[in-house]
Write a protein that binds this DNA or RNA. Structure first.
Lengths: 185, 185
DNA sequence: GAATTATGTCAATATGACTGACGTAAATTT
DNA sequence: AAATTTACGTCAGTCATATTGACATAATTC
């Protein structure tokens, strides 16, 4: 770990500041908006991406590689252009990451049958194995997060997440995620 | 926008690939794990952080500035060390961002009353206004995401997000977020 | 034949993170 | 009073991931 240990340093600090925090003059001016969901989402997403990050670090890959691998695994034969559209990054950014994945034998490129300009992307066996491992880590965290919640909670979370996304992107994303559940708009 | 327009390019591409996708040979090997929550969370978080990013860009600030501003706004008088513990970044990373925020008159530092080594952090009036604006954007998105969901959904989402976080960080984070709702472990 | 599309590549730049070392002042412990 | 710890800052170098803009090539489509 670094020079600061989150769990100990923060809890100690908050203990120390317990007096200050209960002093109204030290409180935030107003709590009109519930801030807690913002912060919970921040910390939840950090841990959610943290699991794969640890595995990827062993391969000297980063989060950018994970995103590419994930969407290629999920959309075998996807074109480079489509991947750019999904990830909304530039060709240059994708190019570097993709080259490293191809060089490492994680992703392979095949010429399009109908259109020979295309470099259709597929995971190799190794890539498939890695992608599954990473997805499983994240899915297990999601499953743990749903434990103890009432029946129907998974569906509520699913609809909540969809509605967090800009509405005009819903149609595209619903096609992309191909949810096995009924996610009507 | 860049050279690729997400909404048009992706939908067109998926249209083109409709045939390929309905061909079983082109499908991912197996869909044992539901991947959809993983992807929905990815896209949801991107849009969630996108709103503040747009505002911050006008100030030539980035997401790192937002995180610092947010937690200072929420914890007036916080010490640098505590902020490092929350954000889990190094002093160097925080130092640069914090200096820019102080120079821009968004955050001010005051010497600790009891401990003169401390540089306690507060938002200025400008900083407070900016922090509220950014929080409001995110809160409005959260509220839109909860529209139409059954009663109790907000509480389910809250518990879901908490349970997404590593359990051994729950205690610290619960103190930090100070949820107005009952978030028992 | 011209225009468009799919892809790749070059050069330059920015942000946000890192490690590791060192320094200073203030507070705390012995 | 001296030693240690804490809070904070800073220097120097590095890395990963992204950006913009221009240009090149081959293949397809109009």
């Amino acid at each position: 770990m670094t020079d600061v240990n989150f769990k100990t340093a923060l809890s100690a600090a908050l203990q120390d500041r317990a007096g200050a925090l209960s002093d109204p003059a030290q409180q935030p001016a107003e709590d009109t908006l519930p801030y807690d969901l913002i912060e919970l989402l921040f910390f939840a997403y950090k841990d959610f991406t943290g699991d794969p990050d640890d595995v990827l670090a062993k391969f000297e890959f980063g989060r950018a590689h994970h995103r590419v691998l994930h969407f290629v695994e999920r959309n075998p034969g996807i074109m480079v252009t489509d991947l750019l559209g999904i990830l909304r990054i530039t060709k240059q950014s994708l190019g570097r990451v993709l080259k490293q994945l191809v060089d490492a034998g994680i992703i392979e490129q095949r010429e399009g049958m109908n259109d020979r300009r295309q470099r259709l992307l597929y995971t190799t066996d190794r890539g498939h194995t890695l992608a599954e491992k990473l997805a499983r880590l994240q899915q297990e965290r999601l499953e743990r997060a749903l434990i103890g919640l009432p029946d129907g909670s998974e569906e509520i979370v699913r609809r909540f997440l969809l509605q967090m996304i800009d509405p005009d992107a819903h149609a595209d994303i619903l096609k992309l995620v191909r949810s096995p559940f009924h996610l009507k708009d």
